[in-house]
């Protein structure tokens, strides 16, 4: 379970998060919706300790993230898979080495077992053909899939997705969304998804949180969000309707 309570974060004079409060139950998928630059990725980075909030508390499975020692934080991070916006694959390693690096750095493993796990994870996301390729040889969609496979390699309890479908064509975006839904069904993981696509948020998540000016201004199921009277939510919905 993830509990975010009154989290503030500023960079110099620029205030990014202004008292964000959010709760994600175990096994639930919550999408955080907001405009570009609204602080969605900053919030995700605060969750895994890449950034430290100025104020507020973040609890993951009861552990207060900002109060953990470096060793405890590492222990917690092993239970979290993080899918980066641009996949962030290690470009000097093949796909196989990308996954193997995460596995072997935490535990020693027989080569056959290692290969088996890697193959299984790549098969789960449908990119086993890319095993010996370098990230630069893959399409954007395949890179995202490999990024998801790498996040899954340590069997995390929580997966954080940072704009998993941004920059992809509609068909590939839908395939990635289907994959995320499938993973949730199969593994029962808790997921937090950053997106600026309402359609995507509606498909993949149980609940949606709308982030505006560093605060969650609406939180609930899609139909609850649709009835929100907050001007930004109304504007967002209107913009989506115009596009549709």
């Amino acid at each position: 379970m993830i509990e975010i309570d009154q989290v503030y974060k500023a960079f110099g004079a620029q205030s990014v998060l202004n008292g964000v409060a959010l709760r994600v139950d175990a096994g639930e998928t919550v999408a955080i919706l907001g405009r570009s630059g609204s602080g969605k990725s900053v919030l995700l980075k605060c969750l895994v300790g890449l950034l430290r909030p100025d104020r507020g508390t973040i609890r993951i499975d009861g552990q207060e993230v900002t109060a953990l020692s470096a060793a405890q934080l590492d222990q917690l991070r092993r239970q979290i898979g993080y899918v980066f916006q641009n996949a962030a694959l290690y470009d000097s390693m093949t796909v196989e080495e990308n996954l193997a690096f995460h596995l072997t750095r935490h535990q020693s493993m027989a080569p056959d077992r290692l290969r088996q796990i890697i193959y299984e994870k790549l098969q789960t996301v449908g990119v086993e053909v890319a095993l010996h390729k370098y990230p630069s040889e893959l399409s954007g969609g395949m890179q995202k899939r490999v990024g998801i496979a790498r996040a899954l390699v340590l069997d995390p309890k929580i997966i954080l997705y940072d704009e998993p479908t941004s920059g992809l064509d509609p068909i590939t975006s839908r395939e990635i969304e289907d994959l995320m839904i499938e993973l949730k069904k199969r593994m029962g993981v808790t997921s937090l998804v950053i997106t600026h696509s309402l359609q995507s948020a509606r498909r993949i998540s149980d609940r949606i949180a709308v982030l505006y000016q560093g605060q969650i201004v609406a939180f609930g199921r899609f139909d609850e969000i649709a009835q929100s009277e907050h001007p930004f939510v109304q504007e967002y919905l209107a913009a989506v309707n115009l596009e549709g």
Partner: peptide, 9 residues
């Protein structure tokens, strides 16, 4: 960052 969040030191 990807290494950091996976606790890879």
């Amino acid at each position: 960052d990807a290494m950091e969040v996976a606790a890879l030191y």
